[in-house]
Computed example of a mutant assay.
Amino acid sequence: MKYDLRIALFQPDIPGNTGTILRMAACLGIAVDVIEPAGFDMSDRALKRAGMDYLEQAALTRHQSWRRFLEWRHSQDRRLILATTKAEQSYRRFAFLPGDVLLFGRESSGVPDQVHKEADERLVVPMVEGRRSLNLAVSAALIAGEAIRQLELI
C-alpha cells in the first residue's frame, strides 16, 4: 500500500498517545514516523493498550535521530507540516498535498527552534481563547482528518 500521508512524532513521551495515533493510522492508511529518542520503551504496556491489536498493522518507521529523519524526508522530497500552538495559520485553511508529513512535537515541550525552522509550513488548531492545548492524539486526528478529506484518500 502506498501511503500518501504520514504522521511524524518528534520524541514522543506519552505511550498512550503514540498507541492511539498508531491505531488511528492503521485504520486510516496513514504511515507513522517516530523520531527518537522516545520518552518510553516502544514495548510499553500503555502503548500496547492504546494501540490494541492494530500496532502490528501500522506502517511504522523509527528514525534514530532528527538528523536521520531529515535525511529520509529530503530523500523522499516530502513537505514537512508542523502542528504547533505558535502558528497563526489554521489547519482548516491549509491546502494539503499528497506526500505531506504532519509533524507533532513532544507532549511535554513541543519541538525545539531548529525543528520549527525545518518545517515548510506551521499550522495551529484554533481553540477557545484562554485554552493552552489539546491532547496530541486529538490534534493529530483533527489535522489528519482534514488532510484525508481534502486529498480524498479514503
Rank of each mutant, 00 (worst) to 15 (best):
R68V: 08
A144Q: 00
E71P: 06
G39V: 12
A46Q: 14
P126S: 08
G16I: 01
A147C: 04
L103T: 02
I148R: 01
A119W: 11
N17P: 00
V138N: 15
A31K: 08
D13F: 07
S43A: 14
I35F: 12
M42I: 12
A8H: 04
L47N: 02
A26D: 04
L82W: 09
E118Y: 01
K86I: 08
E146A: 05
S65Y: 08
D44S: 04
R132T: 10
Y3W: 14
A144F: 06
P15L: 02
W72I: 09
E129F: 06
H116G: 10
D100Y: 09
G130F: 12
L60V: 10
T84L: 06
E36G: 07
K86G: 04
Q114I: 12
D120Y: 11
V101P: 05
R23M: 04
I21T: 06
L9E: 01
G39F: 03
W72L: 14
L28K: 01
N135A: 11
S108Q: 15
I7H: 05
M52S: 13
L134K: 01
D100K: 11
S109P: 08
I81F: 13
S65T: 11
A95D: 15
G99D: 03
S75A: 15
E146I: 00
F104Q: 09
L55A: 05
D4M: 10
W72M: 13
L82R: 02
L123T: 04
A141V: 08
E71K: 09
A50W: 00
T84Y: 04
A38L: 06
H116Q: 11
G110E: 07
S65P: 06
D113A: 11
R92V: 11
K2T: 14
R45L: 08
A25F: 05
L60G: 08
A119C: 12
Y3G: 03
L151Q: 00
D41A: 14
F10M: 11
L103C: 09
D13G: 00
I14F: 03
I154F: 13
Q150A: 07
L142H: 03
G130N: 13
L103S: 05
A141Y: 06
Q57V: 06
A26P: 03
A119S: 14
L70C: 15
D77M: 09
E129W: 03
E56N: 12
E88S: 14
R149P: 01
L97T: 09
R78K: 12
G19Q: 00
L136R: 09
S108V: 11
R68W: 05
Q114R: 09
D44R: 04
M52N: 06
A140E: 05
V138Q: 14
P12E: 02
K48H: 11
V34D: 05
F96Q: 00
A140K: 00
L97I: 08
A31F: 08
V125Y: 09
V34S: 01
Q76N: 10
A141I: 04
Q64S: 15
R93F: 13
Y54C: 07
P15M: 03
N135S: 11
F104C: 09
V115R: 01
Y54W: 15
L97H: 12
G51I: 01
R131F: 15
Q114H: 13
R6Y: 13
E129M: 14
G29R: 06
I21C: 02
T20P: 03
T61Q: 15
P37Q: 07
S90H: 10
L153S: 07
A8Q: 02
C27M: 13
